[in-house]
């Protein structure tokens, strides 16, 4: 990220110009297969000698537990929910992502700020506030969007993990039961992701294809981004 930039009002105390690594975000709705593909990408990159770290939504040291507790208590208003995500993201940005980029790592992000944008928009109908809040985020070098239609997604989720309360947006009371609510909520999310795909120029990958085809498409998009990678591949330890 030679000319790394912040999305909006950035971290005024942190100059992003010395970040040598690459930041690659994999976006897409729940159950679309992001984490599977990120695992495979990491393996592939490491074999080639790139230092890789992965970072995932709600996985920060500071916040993961808090978010779990908050979701279990089911008392979240729109603002608290989005601000909890933002805090988690900021903690990972400053303690994982930026240090790793500074040491020349490839950072694979399982979800990025666009997930927060979609979820907040579906709950509020307002795009401005959430984008202002995430102004401190770095713009990734590449955003791959795993795109799926809601019919295929529904079948896949039933076949694999099953539907849960939050992935069904049950807090929004969109349908009478989990199934109806899931379909309505996920349709809204996908619609917003599609809009953002144009606005922010995501690389769209058809997630209805076989895992092998998706993986090879992802690799095809990532390679050119790494071509001007200046970091020493594989060097250094994963920052704490």
């Amino acid at each position: 990220m030679v000319d790394a930039r912040y999305f909006g009002d950035g971290l005024t105390y942190l100059n992003p110009s010395d970040l040598k690594g690459k930041l690659i975000a994999i976006e897409g709705t729940d159950g679309v297969g992001r984490s599977t593909h990120i695992e495979m990408l990491q393996e592939w990159l490491e074999v080639q000698g790139y230092g890789v770290i992965t970072t995932g939504w709600t996985r920060s040291n500071l916040m993961s537990k808090t978010i779990e507790v908050a979701k279990a208590g089911n008392i979240l208003d729109r603002w608290s929910l989005s601000l909890l995500y933002a805090t988690d993201f900021a903690d990972r940005l400053e303690h994982q992502i930026i240090p790793a980029l500074r040491s020349g790592f490839v950072v694979l992000a399982d979800r990025y700020i666009y997930t927060a944008f979609a979820r907040d928009f579906v709950r509020s109908g307002d795009r401005k506030w959430i984008r202002d809040v995430f102004g401190f985020a770095l713009i990734p070098d590449l955003v791959c969007y795993l795109r799926i239609d809601v019919e295929t997604l529904t079948l896949r989720v039933i076949e694999t993990t099953g539907m849960n309360y939050w992935e069904s947006g049950m807090d929004l009371r969109l349908g009478d039961d989990l199934y109806d609510s899931f379909k309505k909520y996920q349709s809204l999310l996908i619609k917003e992701f599609d809009k953002m795909a144009e606005e922010f120029q995501f690389d769209v990958v058809d997630a209805r294809k076989s895992p092998e085809e998706i993986q090879s498409e992802l690799r095809g998009r990532i390679l050119p981004v790494l071509q001007n990678h200046t970091g020493v591949a594989g060097a250094g330890r994963v920052p704490a």
């Binding site: 603002w79 608290s80 601000l83 933002a86 805090t87 900021a90 903690d91 400053e94 303690h95």
Partner: peptide
């Protein structure tokens, strides 16, 4: 001592949002 200026600020905003609402 792991709070940064940004996470410090975001946490307080979360607290505020939650209290405003509830």
């Amino acid at each position: 001592k792991s709070l940064t200026p940004t996470t410090f600020s975001l946490l307080h905003a979360t607290d505020f949002a939650s209290r405003l609402y509830h």
